[in-house]
Design a protein around this nucleic acid. Structure first.
Lengths: 142, 142
DNA sequence: GCTTGACCTAGAGTTTGCTCTAGCATGTGT
DNA sequence: ACACATGCTAGAGCAAACTCTAGGTCAAGC
């Protein structure tokens, strides 16, 4: 088994983040289990690469730093929080899936507009309205 | 044909945005064709509802205000920019589709972690690493 | 023993996208 | 004629998520 350790510069290169950002994540409570060597320097293990990958996926799917902090706090607390961690991630997954559905609707709207431009370009005259679209939250649709 | 006009308060309610935000959008160059009445008040037409819907979809799909401003500038310039508008929206659509693909990968990673928790909870002991995952940009994968 | 590079902490600065305040004008209803 | 809702502009304030600076420490190589 690979039991390598890394210092922050190496972790930064391997994870594709900056040293600044990794330290900032730790300051935000997003880095559990970071040891220090005799000189006070951070010591990371392989699992930290996996952790940063997870953090990145949570961030890019729209989880806030605050919520990531809550989740990380559960991880720090130990095995007793497994169910709560599961619940939190499962909830986030639902949100991401809802978000994907919304993005698909947005693509449809953009495509309708693209078609509108196609027709306009082809015919030389502006087609009828493209917009009477119900809308996301549907405020106007009343 | 419905040729209604709206003042800003009404447009705000119908579009689900605040009056502040609509004025701010205009200040950012994102509101083409806004007339004024004798008293200097903004006058909107139905197409502005469609326009705000488009702006909202562009924003929520990650287009920056700066790029929306470029696009709006083309709209303001008139029919001569139809092809460029089409190209810009088509490019954005590709980015959104790429983004959707990334989100799906993120969901997969989250689901792997959920499964990891399921197993841990079921067995009472921590399963093996869940993380040796290639990664998005793949820096570590080298 | 001294230079050099990687690290450390604390905290300031930046960017983006709003969101709200202050102070004033307009115009409709009674 | 005057109150009150709605509108106007200019600009301040804010939250989030970084990103960087300053000034110092540590340890490996020459």
């Amino acid at each position: 088994m690979t039991n390598r350790t890394f210092r922050i510069g190496e972790l930064a290169v391997l994870s594709g983040r900056s040293v600044h950002t990794i330290r900032w994540y730790e300051a935000q409570g997003l880095m559990p289990g970071v040891a220090r060597d005799a000189g006070g320097r951070r010591v990371y293990r392989e699992q930290h690469l996996g952790w940063l990958e997870l953090m990145d996926r949570l961030r890019t799917t729209g989880m806030s730093i605050a919520e990531m902090r809550e989740y990380t706090a559960l991880v720090k607390e130990g095995k007793g929080t497994l169910k709560r961690r599961h619940a939190q991630l499962a909830l986030h997954r639902e949100r991401v899936q809802a978000n994907i559905a919304e993005l698909k609707l947005s693509v449809k709207l953009i495509e309708r507009k693209l078609k509108f431009y196609d027709e306009w370009i082809a015919s030389g005259k502006q087609p009828g309205a493209w917009w009477p679209v119900p809308k996301k939250g549907d405020v106007a649709g009343r």
